[in-house]
Amino acid sequence: MNQRPESTQFRHDDGASPAPGDLLLDVRNVSLAFGGVKAITDISFDVREGEIRAIIGPNGAGKTSMLNVINGFYTPQEGTIVFRGKERRSMRPHEAVGQGIARTFQNVALFKGMSTLDNIMAGRSVKMKRNIGWQMLWHGPAIREEIEHRQVVEEIIDFLEIQHIRRTPVGKLPYGLQKRVELGRALAMEPSLLLLDEPMAGMNLEEKEDMSRFIIDVNQQRGTTIALIEHDMGVVMDLSDRVVVLDYGKKIADGTPDVVKSDQAVIDAYLGVAH
């Protein structure tokens, strides 16, 4: 029987998955400085299982630095990060991936000459068990594994509605679609925490609407926890469950969109204060 396979892999594979609302990531008193420049000063916040958490702030507030700290790209001078109960200060990005943290970048960072399919497939490489020798042999276990991974990738292609560009080199695609492919590659890692660095940057209204819908779908259907940085206030307030606001490397507010919106410090930071 050729029944359409009901997707089996639409969840992260961490066995005992924490219940929604549990603490997934806890950032405690983190400070980061580059020489004398303090990028982040004593910031604490948490991300709970199953939520969409936004990090916002004016330019230079330290948002991307914060993401880089979470993802292990920067090592903070002070403070600790607890991810799924494990405490750590320094970690390499690939270790972060191994633990279930995936990200997208502010500037699209895809392999321009490769097709959509291959780009997303590349996201699966961390999940492949066979080594490069097996893969080059292209036989037996390696080919079986490839088929399994292809199944997951095809589900993602279906999910993001990019079937029509499956074979197109991503360099030829419009920007909005490239962003979608990048999201696809991050999803291919089946992360338990997905970090999105300005997913809507440079998009037109329609592309923003599409991307918002995909972010919500990823969160609701795949149950993926999302931390995102975004400039577009409307998008942030609509999408996120909780928002943390940074300004000059300091946390100035933390709470639901409604709370944050009416916070005087936030209004001052965004609109400026009369001196």
Partner: peptide, 16 residues
Amino acid sequence: KDYGIWQSWTWKEQLE
């Protein structure tokens, strides 16, 4: 065509 592959059903399967 689904998940990038042509799935097919025979008349018997279509009946089922």
